[in-house]
Each structure stands twice: as structure tokens, then as C-alpha cells.
């Protein structure tokens, strides 16, 4: 048995942790939305500015989950937390920016090219936390709970003791990021099953007023 012990949603204008709003986009701000959250939450990780949107979203959501659940850093060995992510458009937004660099801006940009793979966000999270665990990035037509349920159970039956899972879809102006932490042992937490995963995934649809 395993449990969903923390989760974070990021949409184009709101950021929620465990279903509660922690940040709202200020449309008058000069800063991009992810940068607003970064500043507001007082993160200090200058590399953030170099990341593409997928990695920025992964950084913010995973750090917010760590704040909600500090035990994640201390309770596990450096290879016991698996990263299982998926989305629909792979790295299409950054791919397009890289294409623009050589079609319109005169030269292919190395710093864009290195982000033209969807799994780079897993690398960024692993580097930041010094996590040497299992990695998986899948591309699916939509959020498929069974994929996360099956694959998380598989890895948790091996040497992983927790999994940080994520649906991370960012394209155009649409942002749909949902990260959740699954742990083998927890008290007073939601059991990790289809029903609860759907419930938690959809929580942002009816924000707490």
C-alpha cells in the first residue's frame, strides 16, 4: 500500500499546494508568472533563471512539495525517490524556441537546445536534490491515472521508497502542472488509488474560495 502525501498544482494564474491557493498571478507585474512565484516564495537558486518553462515548473512544484513535506529530504536515501513524469507535448514549447533561434535569430542556441528534451526537468530536480534514483518521462495523449498508478507501484515494489510524480504540460499560454508525492509509509494520508488520484488531480478545478 502507498499514499499520496503532498501535491501541488500550477495553472496559468494560480498555484496551489495540497489544494490550497498559495499564489495568484499579478497581471500587472513585470515579471513572468513563474518568476513571480519564485520571488514571492523567496527561493534562492540562480539556475532557475536559465531553465525553460518545463524545468521552472518542475522546480517550483517540487520545492513547494518539499516545503509541505520536509520529511522527503531526511527520510530517504539519495536513490530512494523515483521521478515519474509525463505530459502531452514533450518539450514542444522549447523546441519551437530553438527552431526560432536558427530560423529567425541567426544561429542555433546551445542553451535552448539542451532543454529540447522533456526529461531535462528530471535532471534539474535530481541535480538540485542530489537524487540518484529512477527516472521516467512518458508522453501520453492526456493525464492517464493508470500509468502513474502502475508504474509507481512497480518502482515502489523495487528499491524506491517514494515517488515524485508529475503531469507537466506547458504549451502556448496553457499551463497544467500537477506534481504529487507518493510514499510507502504515511499516517493520516490519502491512499494512492485511482479514485483518490483523480480527486486530487481535479482539485484545482474547484478552488477553495
Amino acid at each position: 500500500m502507498s499514499f499520496i502525501t503532498a501535491y501541488c498544482h500550477l495553472t496559468k494564474d494560480t498555484c496551489y499546494v495540497d489544494g490550497e491557493i498559495i499564489s495568484k498571478r499579478d497581471i500587472d507585474s513585470e515579471d513572468a508568472w513563474f518568476k513571480q512565484i519564485y520571488k514571492e516564495q523567496e527561493f534562492v537558486y540562480p539556475k532557475f533563471y536559465k531553465m525553460d518553462m518545463l524545468s521552472q515548473a518542475g522546480f517550483l512544484a517540487s520545492e513547494l512539495i518539499k516545503r509541505a513535506k520536509p520529511g522527503i529530504v531526511t527520510n530517504y536515501g539519495d536513490d530512494e525517490i523515483a521521478l515519474i513524469f509525463a505530459n502531452k507535448s514533450a518539450s514542444a514549447a522549447t523546441d519551437q524556441r530553438f527552431i526560432n533561434s536558427y530560423e529567425k535569430n541567426g544561429s542555433p542556441s546551445p542553451s535552448l537546445f539542451v532543454y529540447t528534451l522533456p526529461n531535462i526537468v528530471l535532471g534539474e530536480i535530481a541535480i538540485l536534490n542530489k537524487w540518484y534514483g529512477e527516472n521516467m518521462f512518458a508522453v501520453l495523449p492526456n493525464f492517464v491515472p493508470d500509468f502513474f498508478l502502475n508504474y509507481t507501484q512497480i518502482l515502489l515494489s523495487g528499491s524506491s521508497k517514494a515517488a515524485l510524480c508529475g503531469w507537466l504540460e506547458i504549451l502556448g499560454n496553457e499551463i497544467d502542472a500537477f506534481l504529487f508525492l507518493v510514499e510507502k509509509e504515511a499516517s493520516n494520508a490519502l491512499q494512492f488509488n485511482h479514485e483518490n488520484l483523480m480527486k486530487v488531480a481535479g482539485q484545482k478545478e474547484s478552488p477553495i474560495s
Binding site: 539519495d78 531535462i120 535532471g123 534539474e124 535530481a126 541535480i127 537524487w131 527516472n135 521516467m136
Partner: peptide, 11 residues
């Protein structure tokens, strides 16, 4: 088998 991240550098 298994996978493991280097936790070192993205590229």
C-alpha cells in the same frame, strides 16, 4: 534492469 540519475549536469 534499473535507471539512475547522475545528479550532476543536464548536458
Amino acid at each position: 534492469g534499473t535507471s539512475a540519475n547522475d545528479a550532476n549536469h543536464i548536458s
